[in-house]
Amino acid sequence: MKRTFGLGGLVSMGMLLSCSQMLIWAQPSLPSDERTNGKEVRAAFSEQCAAIQKCSAVIYDGWRNFNYGIVVSEDGYILVKASELEQRTDLAVRIGETKYTEVKVVATDPHWDVALLKVDADGVSPVVWAESSDLPQGSWVVANGASSRSLRRVNVGIISAESREVKGRAPAVIGVTFKPDKDSLEIHVVSPDTGAEKAGLKAGDIIKKFGGDEVTTRDSLIDRIRDFMAGEKVPIEFERDGELLKADVELMPRDKAYKERKSRNDQMSGDYSKRRDSFPRVLQTDIPFSARTIGGPLLNLDGECVGMNIARANRAESFAIPAKELREVLKKLMKTAR
């Protein structure tokens, strides 16, 4: 029996299970090749597919490809989704048909969740930037789908909602909660198996400095945390019994530190990106990505880049960083590199 979900959030599961037995009237259904992302429809996007083939990079951990990237220079600089690099041990990159196994992570921007990679390439074709990334809603957009060793497929959709900021909590955490009644940084509970516990923090400690900066309120601390990625070790100072102590605390992805129950919408969403919120501005698309097909360029029908696919948010929503903001991020990251 198929499982179905009601969409209004007002129906119980038992009822939904029983509604999948409805008879389907006998008009033949549309063959999968002819569906919106079917093989035969994708054939109409052959020009854009040729562009994707050149300007998207496939990112591997060993032999397994886990994301895409955007080729931004002839000598092998590539933009990727930063949080997807966490705990990858054997990075490799394929541009065109060539696989590069020497990969340097040059710089990262935790706010936008973008990292800059460098491989030793020469004469590869960088992405062509679109003049404007402000496409009207309903405009076709093209991105990476699945790929084989040498061929990238496209994954198509439209701009599906207003471009906007997507708020969220800090994506990385140290693993403590603070006393709920007052806005101080006095630790209430230290969560087990987190950076805070490993660094020896205890309930009652008061955090004074984070990453070298003084912090006094929760907001000021969260602001500083946003400058770091999960996996980084950050020096902190804290007060215990009137004494000032120092420690290095490792940041963890929020979902790993706190096991939160999945919402019903997440249950029906399958494979979404670990980090999917807290972006200063996004374009929204209805492209049916998986978490693995994120990271590559978002192209218009001219094959020009209007953004970078940054998160699979859920079944119905995918986010991209607009090209305008992405190019600013790239400039900053390049400065770090050179």
Partner: peptide, 24 residues
């Protein structure tokens, strides 16, 4: 949120599409 798709099945009391929907 707008989503584009095609009608996949047309039945008496239900039609199917590949416009991807979610709760809400």
């Amino acid at each position: 949120v707008v989503r584009l798709g095609r009608l996949i099945k047309v039945a008496e009391t239900t039609v199917h599409s590949d416009c991807v929907l979610i709760g809400g």
